[in-house]
């Protein structure tokens, strides 16, 4: 029987804890133990960015962390981006509006990467947007509409203020 280790993480504002094998990746913990299947598993070795989550507010790849390493830290997944009433966030709605997704596989990672950008840089340039999503692969859109979606969201968020 493989040894289990305690993990206590704050996920989307809620404390979650479990006993897990040390080799369980953070993304597998989120999806399989917590059933938060919004975060997608792509390449599982840090190339595609589909599994991006925020660790203490900064975007990281959840396939390149073991769940035990996140013990005591704060994780935000794509589920944590939506308002409490279950409607789409401004960024998510902008992705729909600007056709920033087609198959949707990369979308959770794109949303995490671009939300982290907007949190730090409310009015990003095109270059900053492309840099922020540079570690996320998309096979459908050609990235153009994703960049448009982030720009649209930045404008809408500025209007709300």
């Amino acid at each position: 029987m493989e040894k289990l280790y305690p993990v206590a993480i704050e996920v989307n504002g809620k404390p979650r804890s479990a006993q897990v094998p040390a080799r369980l990746s953070l993304v597998d913990f989120l999806r399989e133990e917590l059933r938060l299947t919004g975060t997608h598993v792509g390449c599982e070795h840090g190339i595609c960015g589909a599994c991006s989550v925020m660790l203490d507010g900064d975007p990281v790849r959840s396939c390149l962390m073991f769940a035990v390493q996140a013990d005591g830290h704060r994780i935000t997944t794509v589920e944590g981006l939506t308002p409490a009433d279950g409607t789409l966030s401004v960024l998510q709605d902008s992705f729909c509006e600007a056709h920033g997704l087609q198959c949707g596989y990369c979308t959770p990672g794109m949303l995490i990467a671009s939300q982290a950008l907007l949190n730090a840089t409310p009015n990003p340039s095109e270059e900053q947007i492309r840099d922020a999503i540079g570690g996320n692969l998309c096979r459908c859109t050609g990235y153009r509409q994703i960049v448009d979606a982030v720009k649209l969201a930045a404008g809408r968020l500025a209007e709300q203020k």
């Binding site: 960015g49 390149l64 990467a113």
Partner: peptide
């Protein structure tokens, strides 16, 4: 070096 997400870690 890498990307935003890998440089954060």
């Amino acid at each position: 070096v890498g990307h935003v997400q890998t440089r954060n870690r």
